[in-house]
Amino acid sequence: MKQLKKSLPHVCPSCQSPLKVTSLSCDACETVVSGSFELPLLARLSGEELQFVLDFVKSSGSLKVMAQQLGLSYPTVRNLLDDLIQKIETNERILKPDK
């Protein structure tokens, strides 16, 4: 049977508000922790975006190295990074509207 790849939902399917973590569990002893926890900013990114962040860190923040590794041009990679920065800033504003 084909393994279904699940992705972490970030927004409420009903009202589009950001979701929170209300329960964490231990697979080994089945302990369950309940509460209301904010998802970290990076956890709110899509799988592809998160991979981009990881590649960026692994290449010591060098866009030139990243461009070579991804087979893309330098401005294309820079544009992807700018898009990501914009998304993170938007998420920050949504999560902290008072700031």
Partner: peptide
Amino acid sequence: PFTYIAGLKSL
């Protein structure tokens, strides 16, 4: 093609 080539190489 600029998705793949830009900068000095394309110059």
